[in-house]
């Protein structure tokens, strides 16, 4: 119990004293997850929307694969990306292993299926009557798609919230492809693992508290967006 309290005090102290290393870790965490979620969203929403709005052979199979990928263990993603990027792997020549870019690649693979899966269900749950109405009012195909996405906006924000949660909290993939190199690829989750291994429990707890805090701030902003979307 004392350790938890100590951790919280230390977290507060690290934040207010602008601890250089902590802020470096914090910004790298936000950068890696932020870019991964942004890319996952840019790729995921159009794919999810077109899957939901079109009928094609293998649609159900595709959705099942996406749903499976939503729950794939990050370590498995990390392992596969590692094998691709390692010196002997097919993309070894790019020399990306143990860089933030490698971490972003792994996290895009984690985030995109979440965005695709939730988008498919959000767009799919917009009633057919809305589609008929919009077409009958004279919308082109593009206008129809944009309007349906707008109708599904609450679900789309949910997709982003879930993707953020998954990338911020995962440790398995970033530790394999990033290597937890101090000053270079150490993010909050990998730092927690490292400090725990060293027995610095209160420092690890402090990092955990900070991770929770930024997760809360991001969710708070997104949830406000979601609700203002509902009221519009």
């Amino acid at each position: 119990m004392d350790q938890i309290l100590e951790g919280l005090v230390q977290a507060f102290w690290l934040l207010v004293t602008l601890n250089h290393e902590l802020y470096l870790i914090l910004f790298l965490t936000l950068r890696v997850s932020g870019i991964a979620v942004a890319l996952g969203t840019i790729v995921g929403i159009p794919i999810g929307a077109s899957v939901a709005l079109r009928d094609f052979m293998g649609k159900k199979l595709f959705i099942s694969i996406v749903n499976t990928m939503m729950g794939v263990p990050p370590v498995v993603v990390g392992l596969v990306v590692y094998l691709f990027l390692s010196a002997s792997g097919p993309l070894g020549i790019l020399r990306l292993l143990y860089t933030p870019t490698a971490m972003i690649i792994a996290q895009v693979i984690i985030a995109a299926p979440i965005v695709i899966g939730v988008t498919v269900s959000a767009v799919g749950s917009v009633e057919n009557g809305i589609r008929d109405k919009v077409i009958s009012l004279g919308a082109t195909k593009t206008q129809l798609t944009l309007t349906i996405l707008q109708e599904a906006r609450v679900g789309l924000v949910t997709a982003v919230i879930l993707a953020f949660g998954a990338t911020l909290s995962e440790v398995g993939a970033v530790i394999i492809v990033g290597g937890d190199i101090r000053w270079v690829t150490r993010v909050l989750t990998t730092a927690i693992v490292y400090e725990t291994e060293l027995g610095n429990f209160s420092f690890a707890l402090a990092l955990g508290a900070i991770l929770l805090l930024i997760a809360f701030v991001i969710n708070w902003v997104l949830t406000r967006m979601q609700w203002s979307g509902l009221r519009r």
């Binding site: 009557g129 919009v134 009958s136 009012l137 004279g138 082109t140 309007t147 109708e151 519009r232």
Partner: peptide
């Protein structure tokens, strides 16, 4: 031709926004 035709369904759904945004929608897409 469809843009020359108006339809009122038996069960109409509204876009989840204001009444005015719903009414102006056909003009905006034109």
């Amino acid at each position: 031709l469809r843009r020359e035709i108006g339809i009122v369904f038996q069960h109409n759904l509204m876009l989840n926004t204001s009444v005015s945004a719903n009414v102006v929608y056909p003009l905006k897409i034109r």
